[in-house]
Design a protein around this nucleic acid. Sequence first.
DNA 1: GTTTAACCCTGCACGC
DNA 2: TGCGTGCAGGGTTAAA
Length: 280
Amino acid sequence: MELPEVEVVRRELEKDVVGRRISSVDVRRSANARRIIRRHDAPKELRDRLLDRKITGVDRIGKYLLLRLDDGGVIVAHFGMSGRFLLAQKKQHLDPHTHVTIGFKEGRELRFIDPRSFGELFSTTVDELGKVRELQHLALDPLEQAFTWQQFSQLLAERKAQLKPLLMDQEFISGLGNIYSDEVLFAAGLAHDRRSDELSSQEVRRLYRAVVEVLLDAIRARGTTLDDEAYVGLTGKPGEFQEELRVYGRAGEPCRRCRTPIEVVKRSRRSAYFCPQCQS
DNA sequence: GTTTAACCCTGCACGC
DNA sequence: TGCGTGCAGGGTTAAA
């Protein structure tokens, strides 16, 4: 799950969960549930921090969600590969991979579900936010006002790395993963292994526009829901951006722009999809 | 500084 | 049918 999916969930949380008061917190007694809240909380600590608090706002930094509480507390959530939130009625069937359940006074509950257990959910406070290791090294979020062409141009020039891994580096910009880095590079017409410090100013501008436009398009389509992945919105409705993917997952299929078959290369277990004709 | 590989994890596709 | 194997990918970490 990457920035667009997390942003869609953020907007849904803002609409459906802000203003709710937490009446119960349940952490499953499984090794994976402990792993999800790992390092930061014991189940009792998480419960004590959240119980009776009201959720006052929901922010996002890169792929991290921050649910703010009325006493200065913050719930931090990251979905990893297969994690998601489900807003359900309490009597609704419980997915076996539900690790944490946050119940509200009005009746429904927010469930953190994650089959592969790469996700995280833990509590902290506004004052301690700067000390949270996961958040410390996050770079600028590309949908923030501060993400300008000039800024991006300078960042690219300061590094000498291949574009694809650089775009996915959360210390460079935060929010892109494997799917959207491929889509962005296609939209910009740039090859995945081009060097960041060897781009012309025109290419930098194309890349900048591609980052912003692909992310906004994906958010408009409510994110990408792939067959083998669990991403669906807060209430179970899948995204639609998978219909608009230009290269990701389309190896061997004709490029939508020039009909050349899309190619894929593997580098340390990550695949990069691209059109050899349109990207150079 | 950059790149590579291994690790965490489970569901699924595949071949025998 | 059933088993073993490989793969997917978020991030982190260690090593090259």
